[in-house]
Design a binder for these strands. Structure first.
Lengths: 106, 106
DNA sequence: CTTCTTTATGGTCATATAGCCATAAATGCG
DNA sequence: CGCATTTATGGCTATATGACCATAAAGAAG
C-alpha cells in the first residue's frame, strides 16, 4: 500500500536512528539493564559527547527514554518491538550468507 | 547480548538501506507486484538515475533482486521479513503519537 | 549497421552525519 | 559558597549521502 511522502519521511526517520553500529550497540547494552551515560560511554569506547548525541538520536526516535537521578542520566528501552526489527535484519544477513555459499558451491 | 564491532557494522549497513523515504516507497510498490525501473521511476517521481541508485542500495543489502528481460530490469522483493521491520517502525510511531497526546491532555 | 529504448554509472555539488574538543548546565558535596 | 562530577550542547572538520546531468552499456528493432 502506497503512503504519502510525509508518512515515508516519518518512517525513514525512525529507521535512520537504527542505522548506526554504535546505536545498535547501545540498544543491545540497554536490553540487559538500564545504564547511565558514563557506563554506556565505557561500553562504546568513544567520546562521551559522541555517546550523548547517539542517545539523543535514539530518544528522539522513541526507542529509549531517560530518567535523571541526581546528576546522572539513566537510559532505558522504551519499545517492545526491537526483536521484530532485529529479526528482519538477521534474516536478511542469513540470506546473504546463503547467497555467498551458492557462489562457492557451484 | 553484546556483539562484535563487525557484527554491528553489518547490521547497521542493512538498516541503513531502509532509512530513506524513497527506498521505503520502492519496497511498498514492489510489495504489490514486480516492476521495472521505468515504472518505479514514474512512481517515485525523481530522476531515473536516482531511482537506479536507490535500487542498487536495496539490492546490495539483500532486500530485492533483479531479473533482466531484454533491455529492462525487473525488481522484486527478496525477503519475507519486511512486515516485521515495518511492524516495529509503526509501533514506535504509534507510541510517539501517544506521547504527544499525553502532553496535550494534561 | 544504425538507431531507439532502457538501465547503470561517473561527475559534481549541496547537505547531512559523526567524530572530537571545549565548555555550559545541573547537581552533589565539602 | 566553591569545587568536583556527570551530562548536554556548540564549534569545527572530515567523510558520506543524495540529488541531478550527462553519458556509457546493452539489447531491440528497423
Amino acid at each position: 500500500m502506497i503512503k504519502t511522502k510525509a508518512q515515508y519521511d516519518a518512517r525513514a526517520e525512525i529507521a535512520k536512528a537504527l542505522s548506526h553500529p554504535t546505536r545498535l550497540l547501545l540498544l543491545d547494552a540497554l536490553a540487559e539493564r538500564d545504564l547511565c551515560v558514563g557506563e554506556l560511554t565505557e561500553i562504546v569506547g568513544a567520546d562521551q559527547s559522541t555517546v550523548s548525541k547517539h542517545l539523543a538520536v535514539l530518544k528522539d526516535a522513541g526507542f529509549v527514554e531517560v530518567e535523571k537521578r541526581g546528576t546522572m542520566s539513566f537510559y532505558s528501552i522504551r519499545c517492545q518491538c526491537l526483536d521484530q526489527f532485529f529479526g528482519c535484519i538477521e534474516s536478511v544477513l542469513r540470506q546473504k550468507v546463503r547467497a555467498q555459499q551458492d557462489l562457492v558451491e557451484l
